[in-house]
Design a protein around this nucleic acid. Structure first.
Lengths: 243, 243
DNA sequence: CCGTGATTTTGTGTATACATGCTGCGTGCG
DNA sequence: CGCACGCAGCATGTATACACAAAATCACGG
């Protein structure tokens, strides 16, 4: 039972190295069962396999992961703390289903924070950061042409992650990436749409130009606009889909 | 029958954040034991009774709160998720003791976010918000003269809370207040110092003036500067105290 | 005297059992 | 026919027991 080579089915398994470090926990220490379960559930929520509002029954999950309720409970607590699930006493856990207004607030917040990150990145980035930003931007553009939606999402995340890293503020970076996880279920619908992808492309160009040009304010503005457009599209699409 | 009102608190309503009652009244049970314990521990950490680095033994805490280890564990998980304690597998929980660099990042982040809140508040505040900001500002000034440090801290928090509320973004507000909790152990040393209080007073004046004047950029700048000064003083003091 | 390794001890991680409050449905009354 | 009350089933909250890893202690040898 000591052998912890978890051969779980896992999911896509095509873990992109660039976006792999989206986990704020980099303890490097051996993971506990609860953390493994939390990570697995988080993936499923972010990937949209578990839709918002879905009930998360402790016993069922326990059977599914072949553990008792205890680690499952702790995993759910972890996810609840990061805002991905909601737990109400004596009721149970469900995948978080924020109100429209809450999603709006989250988009606005992440926009502001990404803008801060862009500004700081502009002021602080090393040559290596600059290179990585250019590189991920190019990769993003390339994926945009190829039309592979999954690849595009991964590259897009990598581009943004490069900016977060360049901001040289770990707390900021962690917060942004947590917020993006919470918003992932709502972004998914958007990023797949070709016209959005094209617009994002354009916005990325502006953003990258400002970054490489060292114009912090322009970069911040471009980033905020970028997120705002995304949010707008998300709401328009949500409305048209009666979500 | 539970007569607990699950009413969500109205945003601009009579919300005495000034009170910040440290005494968790146990009228009935609006929460589970784990949450009660988490709240109690959070208070003790924020108040500085539990210093950073202090070990949090599950069994000892269980005896202290007269519960088994289970709710204690969940409480610790809750606090860990909010960043107030650190849990390492097979090691246990300790009150979070971030590195200097991490504290620096946190101060910078909270400064940026408070600045965002100030800007948004400037653009969105209702008459009621405006009144509340003025009112809490006056109270703050008054407490500054009286010399009651605890009262001043409470009023100061209320002033900032009024701005957060006026920003009309709940997610932003929650994040800022969480960050402030995490920084509380390090702010404590500063806020008590008279010269810092006086400087803060001045900065508050500038900030309030910009807010009431509707100058969003000036308000954001003033807020960022306000937090930056606080952080600077905190680091200077920490160095002089060899912390 | 001190370093090194085995042993004990302690505390966390997980499992299981019990208690309590919610949910849903059926029955009886208005 | 509709609604309220009550009961049974069940999921969560809490307690307790066991397994195992890490720290502390001690014994032994250099």
């Amino acid at each position: 039972m000591a052998d912890q080579t978890h051969e779980k089915e896992s999911l896509g398994a095509t873990e992109d190295a660039a976006g792999a470090d989206t986990a704020p926990r980099e303890t490097g220490r051996p993971a506990t069962r609860a953390e493994e379960i939390a990570a697995a559930l988080e993936d499923e929520i972010v990937q949209g396999e578990l839709e918002p509002g879905r009930r998360l029954d402790e016993q069922i999950l326990g059977r599914r992961f072949e553990v008792s309720r205890t680690p499952v409970r702790e995993a759910l607590r972890l996810l609840a703390a990061s805002g991905l699930v909601t737990i109400e006493p004596r009721i149970g856990a469900v995948v978080a289903r924020p109100t429209v207004s809450e999603v709006f607030d989250l988009f606005e917040l992440v926009g502001e924070m990404e803008a801060v990150a862009a500004r700081l990145a502009c002021e602080r980035m090393t040559d290596h950061d600059r290179e990585r930003i250019m590189q991920t931007h190019d990769a993003c553009r390339e994926a945009g042409r190829s039309g592979d939606a999954d690849a595009y999402i991964a590259r897009n995340d990598a581009f943004h992650a490069a900016i977060h890293t360049a901001s040289e503020n770990r707390a900021l970076r962690d917060q942004i990436e947590l917020l993006n996880k919470r918003l992932a279920p709502y972004r998914r619908f958007i990023t797949f749409r070709p016209e959005r992808k094209q617009a994002a492309e354009q916005e990325h160009e502006t953003l990258a130009a400002a970054l490489l040009d060292g114009d912090a304010e322009a970069a911040a503005r471009a980033m905020k606009e970028h997120v705002r457009m995304l949010a707008d599209d998300a709401f328009v699409l949500a409305r048209s889909l009666r979500l």
